[in-house]
């Protein structure tokens, strides 16, 4: 249930394109035709699906303060979080290039339709954004990280599919010449984003209060009172 909630939340409420405005560049550049948009969308889903869990593992076992504890207790004090960017980027770029090589070898037809987008993805900030959100939101388990990656990717896919369909249709409309192309796309995206904002109200009841919450014990309360008396 929680996984399902996370999945839909990352698709609609925290949509990569419309809510956090990541991945805008490829979203705008590759949305002229539905077929190419689908290609890029699928590639993004795929790469997010792989890199978010991978980077989650990196974060848990290498980067977080104290994450190196599994090596030996004496490494528990190390904080390598300043390396996050570099490692995340390296994972993403490596994965993208690996995928490219594998797809090219085994399915040339898929490569022909997808291949051109793969290098584009390495610089798509939605991908790095996915990993950084995973880190900053402290997603607790590997499964959730995977679901989050999948959901964010699907959100991007939906967004780029929608705008590509609109752009195909708008060709028949009488748009002012200077707005044609990029200009009108910006404005439509803005309007779509306003629409997506309405999803924001869907999941508001979710306070974390439900989890086990310690409170200060009676014994401790008396001790604090003593301490306060001393300075009063």
């Amino acid at each position: 249930m929680e996984l399902l909630e996370l999945f839909f939340k990352s698709i609609f409420i925290e949509n990569m394109v419309f809510a956090t405005f990541l991945g805008m560049c490829s979203y705008l550049a590759v949305s002229k035709k539905v077929s190419t948009a689908v290609g890029l969308g699928v590639a993004v889903i795929f790469v997010l699906f792989i890199t978010v869990p991978l980077n989650w593992l990196l974060d848990q076992y290498i980067l977080q303060p104290g994450a190196l504890r599994w090596l030996d207790e004496e490494y528990a004090d190390y904080d390598l979080s300043f390396l996050s960017f570099i490692l995340f980027i390296a994972t993403i770029a490596t994965m993208v290039q690996l995928v490219e090589i594998v797809v090219e070898k085994f399915s040339p037809s898929l490569y022909n339709s997808l291949g051109v987008f793969l290098p584009l993805i390495a610089v798509n900030c939605a991908i790095l954004g996915g990993s950084l959100f995973m880190q900053s939101r402290e997603i607790p388990t590997l499964t959730e990280a995977t679901v989050y990656g999948l959901g964010s990717g699907t959100g991007f896919f939906l967004a780029i599919l929608a705008i590509a369909a609109i752009r195909e249709k708008i060709r028949y409309s009488n748009v002012p010449p200077a707005l044609r192309g990029l200009g009108i796309t910006f404005i439509i995206t803005g309007l779509m984003a306003i629409g997506f904002m309405s999803f924001g109200g869907m999941l508001t009841g979710g306070k974390d209060g439900g989890s086990k919450q310690e409170t200060i014990s009676k014994v401790a309360i008396e001790k604090i009172k003593e301490e306060v008396k001393q300075i009063d």
Partner: peptide, 23 residues
């Protein structure tokens, strides 16, 4: 979303001034 729309307007103005940029 308004950033997108303002950007759209900036593009509109720019391309109206320099028509060679129109797509």
């Amino acid at each position: 979303p308004m950033a997108l729309i303002v950007l759209g307007i900036v593009i509109w103005v720019q391309r109206s001034r320099n028509t060679s940029l129109i797509e």
